[in-house]
Each structure stands twice: as C-alpha cells, then as structure tokens.
Design a binder for these strands. Structure first.
Length: 203
DNA sequence: ACGGGGATGGGCT
DNA sequence: GCCCATCCCCGTA
C-alpha cells in the first residue's frame, strides 16, 4: 500500500480529479490511522477558473500553496468554522487543486465518530454513519484535518493517498457545488463522483 | 419536501 | 460590510 508518487499529481487537474476516485486517503493522527475511500471530488483549474481561489492570478497567504508543486495539501477555513481539504495539482506556478468533497470510512471509524459526534461508533444511527464524512467540512472534522495540515506534502507526510483494489465502479460528473458566482464556469462538469455510492454528499 | 437562519473568521471592495 | 468550495436546526406543508 504505497503512497501515490509525485507524478500522479502533476497531471492535468481533470485527470487527477477523476483518478482520485476510489483511492484511499490516510491520516496518521493521535497515534491512530484513519483511512477513507475518496468518492467525490471537484477540480479547480488555474487562474482562468472563475470558481477558483486562484482566479485572475490572485495570490494571498491563504491560497499560497496552490502555486506550489502538485501533491501537497491545501486546507482553508470556510464560513469561519469549517475546513476544506484540497490536493494541489499540476506544476509549480500553475495554481490548481482538487477539492475532496466526500469519503467513505474504511479504517478508524471509532475515532471519526468521536470527532464528529463525541460518542462511540456503535451508538450512531444509520443516518449518522452515512453522514460521518459525506461533505467537505464533515470529512475534515472526521479525519482531523485542519490548518496544521495546510501545505503538507502528501508524498512524504502522515497525510497521504494510496492506490487500493476496488470493486469496479462507474464515474459520473456534474456541475460543482455552491459556486453560483463563477459565471460561465458555474456549469462546467468538473465534479466527479462514484455512481451509486452511499457516501456521496447530498444535494 | 423545502426554505430560512445562525455560527463565525478571513479575504476582498 | 459583504461574501463565501458548509453544516445543522427549526419552521411550515
């Protein structure tokens, strides 16, 4: 179960966004290992993308890591109280990233339940089990991803992504979520998800 | 089923 | 001062 190497992340952002589906996102934290299958992603592509923090070449302390080399984590605060986890893609200087919108628990569900609900996994309702990490803010709480993880290299840190065996699945696309301000980029089909997967975010 | 609003901080005009 | 790559809760139907 090896970490994906640098070359995986240096490819076209749309290719990476789709290729991340089915991969295992792993965080070794609090002496435990949490691992989840990625089931939903969104691509944010370069300075031309009006939906992206990097639109127009905007470069601030917040989005600085988008300008670094592919394969590092971009974690930012949204609505004052949640985090979003992204994977930086493409070459240094081309600000692009893939937002991970939903994952499926594989390992460490106990710790995830504690972080999300403060109770044991066994006491969760079926609805709560499906809601552990089916959204970008929820998965960051469940997997203990926050500002400390911003800028970490997924090729050489305790936060990383692995290739694993999967049952065959079909990929679907749709417009990205909650970017109504992005004008002609609003309807680009740059959201990718595993068809029929119960952990894809609700819409 | 669907809609409104609150929490809450950083980045921008 | 307003806008968010969000989530949860509470209303009305």
């Amino acid at each position: 179960m090896d970490k994906l190497d640098r070359d995986f992340y240096l490819r076209d952002t749309l290719v990476v966004a789709e290729a991340l589906l089915g991969k295992l996102l792993v965080h070794e934290t609090g002496g435990q290992r949490i691992a989840c299958r990625i089931v939903e992603t969104e691509a944010y592509i370069g300075p031309e993308d009006k939906g992206s923090h990097s639109f127009g070449g905007r470069r601030t302390k917040r989005n600085e890591v988008m300008y670094h080399i592919g394969g590092i984590a971009y974690v930012y605060i949204i609505y004052g109280m949640y985090y979003c986890f992204n994977v930086v893609t493409e070459q240094e200087g081309r600000p692009s990233a893939v937002l991970v919108r939903a994952v499926e628990p594989v390992l460490g569900a106990e710790q995830m339940a504690e972080s999300r609900y403060g109770v044991a996994y066994s006491s969760l309702s079926s609805k709560q089990r499906l809601s552990l990490c089916n959204g970008p803010g929820k998965l960051c709480i469940a997997m203990d991803i926050g500002k400390a993880e911003n800028g970490l290299d997924l090729c050489s840190s305790k936060l990383y992504i692995c290739d694993v065996e999967n049952e065959p699945f079909s990929v679907r696309t749709s417009p990205r979520i909650n970017i109504a301000y992005a004008e002609e980029y609003t309807l680009k089909p740059w959201r990718f998800y595993i068809e029929g997967n119960a952990y894809v975010s609700k819409r």
